[in-house]
């Protein structure tokens, strides 16, 4: 499904601030695979997602999605195949537009937008049904502006926007990091529900090690732009957070002392 071949991304090349954010990284995802990504600050997790999504262009290497070479495809074109949810709840929605209008924009994702009415009656009904399944009562607030929603509600809505047209790949970039624990839990449950329901191929970056092992079918750990650990199958089911930390120290030669990583 997704095939990344030895990509490299260097920020500010040639300057004293030169930083190799992604270093000869290769990764292959099968269809329907749900991969969680962990790593310290500056490990290159977000950069990896941005390279896949086309926000950043890689300096070398190739990226294939569903057999198609997307290495140089502009971000907005890739978005037709890729759904994304960001860490900042403000980034995923248009705050001055209604919930319904936001959904309508997402719903016309796969086609060229023309002068047809943005929202049709039949769509309105579909949107209500989809919203009802989030279990947040948003189906009764469909005409309200998104600016009135809480962070958790916005992330739930963004998840729906990203998946209402089934994407070939779903990218989640610490999408619960800015939420309080209760909202975070709710959005994570919803994430799992949507991924299971649509059998979505997913990459989820998380700062929560427990979540990383609990969700999905595969976990990779990144350090300095490389994958230093790739856990699947039995090895993964037997893995604990403690052992993971130990692994990290051994593989990276550093002590994991990152405040942002939740160890429990």
């Amino acid at each position: 499904m997704l095939k990344i071949e030895t990509i490299t991304k260097i920020f500010s090349p040639g300057s004293i601030n030169e930083k190799k954010a992604i270093d000869n990284l290769s990764l292959t995802l099968d269809k329907g695979e749900f991969v969680t990504v962990i790593g310290g600050n500056g490990a290159g997790k977000s950069t990896l997602l941005n390279c896949i999504a086309g926000v950043l262009e890689t300096d070398s290497g190739k990226i294939y999605l569903g057999g198609e070479d997307i290495t140089y495809m502009p971000e907005y074109k890739r978005s037709r195949y890729i759904g994304r949810v960001f860490q900042d709840p403000l980034l995923g929605t248009a705050f001055d537009m209604t919930i319904e209008e936001n959904l309508a924009i997402a719903y016309s994702k796969a086609k060229t937008r023309g002068l047809a009415p943005g929202i049709r009656k039949s769509q309105s009904k579909l949107f209500r049904e989809k919203l009802a399944r989030l279990g947040l009562g948003l189906e009764n607030r469909i005409q309200q502006k998104v600016g009135l929603l809480s962070g958790g509600q916005r992330q739930a809505l963004t998840l729906l926007l990203a998946t209402i047209v089934k994407p070939e790949l779903l990218l989640l970039d610490e999408h619960t990091a800015a939420l309080d624990p209760a909202a975070s839990r709710q959005v994570m449950d919803l994430t799992r529900q949507l991924i299971m329901e649509h059998q979505l191929t997913t990459i989820m970056v998380t700062h929560n090690m427990k979540n990383a092992l609990e969700f999905g079918s595969r976990t990779i750990m990144m350090h300095e732009g490389r994958i230093i650990l790739d856990l699947q199958g039995r090895e993964r089911t037997e893995m604990t957070v403690e052992k993971l930390i130990e692994h990290f120290s051994r593989k990276s030669g550093e002590v994991l002392d990152n405040d942002r990583l939740l160890l429990i």
Partner: peptide, 28 residues
């Protein structure tokens, strides 16, 4: 009418949040 069409909606969303519009498959 125009601002309620498919194109109109993405034009309005561009003023709100360009990143969202690109993430939803439209060239800002």
């Amino acid at each position: 009418y125009f601002l309620k069409t498919e194109l109109g909606l993405v034009i309005r969303a561009t003023g709100d949040n360009e990143q969202m519009v690109r993430a939803l498959g439209c060239n800002t």
